[in-house]
Design a binder for these strands. Structure first.
Lengths: 226, 226
DNA sequence: CGATTATGTTGACAATGCTAACACATTGAT
DNA sequence: ATCAATGTGTTAGCATTGTCAACATAATCG
């Protein structure tokens, strides 16, 4: 019997068990549950996650998950946190790339953000849905030294732009909120199908970023000149 | 027995029935179902709507709704459409108020939009959720003469601004998409608790509108002058 | 009046989240 | 080493929910 059963391939436990012996304990059920649930969210949507379906996929019984999470909602919260880890990782390099100008980093950030949403629409929707509020309230608490979210970095980028004279002086928190709003709103409208754009995604993105930059950059009103 | 039963108060049927006689037919079950469901969405959230709870509220049996809607999903779609009727009504007067300048109408529109979302968060979330896609795909089909949506009017407002020389020339569809994105994004971030703002809603709104207007208005870059 | 259609009701079923009771495994103090 | 306590996994079963089938009542129309 060289058969490898399914459960074994999900078993992340470094302690090896005798081959083909199905161990009573899964070994890493919690990690497997979150990881598999994350995949299910992205592939089939949040509603596809039933505890029975998920348990089956990871090779456990219906209620094993209750040993690691209080209820389904807690499991979803863990999936959301895992989603944000992926998400935040997309921006670390961009914000830290001091070789590039503020404007370059700005539009790269926007492009990466929209790309994540468009490529992972079902996950993005859950991450920024109503339920995601609970565990992530520190996003806009800029005083919190633990705050390493993309929003925090965006505020920093705008501050840098202001200090370099690229952006006009204004409350960088408010400016960042405006920027985030537009990019988040654009992402949501597109992935939820309200803005039916098909092939015009790029044009809409460019127009949005251009409007934002025009609004943020140092400018002189026409009336000030004429 | 001068008791008035609950069902009667929901009976919109103009044909009067003998008092205290509970009629076999509801009389206006479909309208009552949508109206009550709309209230339930706003008061308790979408998840509070179970066909049993809803049927009970309108004084009908569990499955009566299936005589008027194929399934629960179809009922929700009707609720969403009813929500958009309320929503769109908020903007008709604003867009049509030609006494006011384009800029005034612009910011009034934005303020009314955000106010609707903040005052009806649960309804707004459902209206602009994933499920609302189906029945409302014509929103950004500007060729459609039936299109009387707010988005259509927004495009018109931006065109007017461009013709008056208030806004710089650009594709008005793209400009409107940018504007809608920011206001929708701001609404969603606030009502879903991602941007925790509490008392700063006004400041954030003003900053966002200002950024948009700065980005849309006729401007001269500083570099063009210096 | 009678038949057809529209509308409303009851009973039942499968799927789902969850709890209770039990089974197995691991750990750690003695 | 022992064994009690704890951690982890399983099965049985319950309440809720969406849905369907079968039946009941009302409205419509020839």
């Amino acid at each position: 019997m060289t058969n490898v059963n399914i459960k074994e391939s999900f078993c992340y436990n470094p302690v090896m068990k005798p081959r083909n012996a199905k161990p009573y304990h899964h070994g890493n059920l919690k990690t497997a549950a979150v990881g598999t649930a994350l995949e299910m969210v992205e592939n089939e949507g949040l509603e596809a996650i039933t505890l029975r379906a998920l348990s089956h996929k990871i090779g456990a019984s219906r209620t094993a998950i209750y040993r690691h999470f209080d209820n389904k909602e807690a499991l979803i919260q863990a999936v959301i946190l895992a989603g944000f880890e992926r998400f935040d990782a997309e921006f670390i390099d961009i914000f830290a790339d001091h070789e590039r100008s503020v404007l370059e980093r700005f539009s790269m950030m926007g492009r990466a953000y929209l790309a994540f949403a468009v490529e992972n629409p079902k996950l993005y929707r859950v991450m920024f849905g109503e339920k995601a509020r609970l565990e992530r309230e520190a996003v806009c608490d800029l005083e919190d030294p633990e705050n390493t979210t993309g929003f925090h970095a965006l505020v920093g980028l705008i501050e840098a732009g202001q200090q370099q004279g690229v952006f006009k002086k204004s409350d960088p928190f408010l400016a960042a909120a405006s920027v985030w709003s537009m990019i988040h709103g654009l992402s949501m409208l597109i992935i939820d199908g309200h803005l039916v754009v098909s092939d015009k995604v790029d044009a809409i993105f460019e127009a949005g970023i251009a409007t934002l930059l025009e609004g943020l950059k140092v400018t002189l009103q026409a009336k000030d000149v004429c």
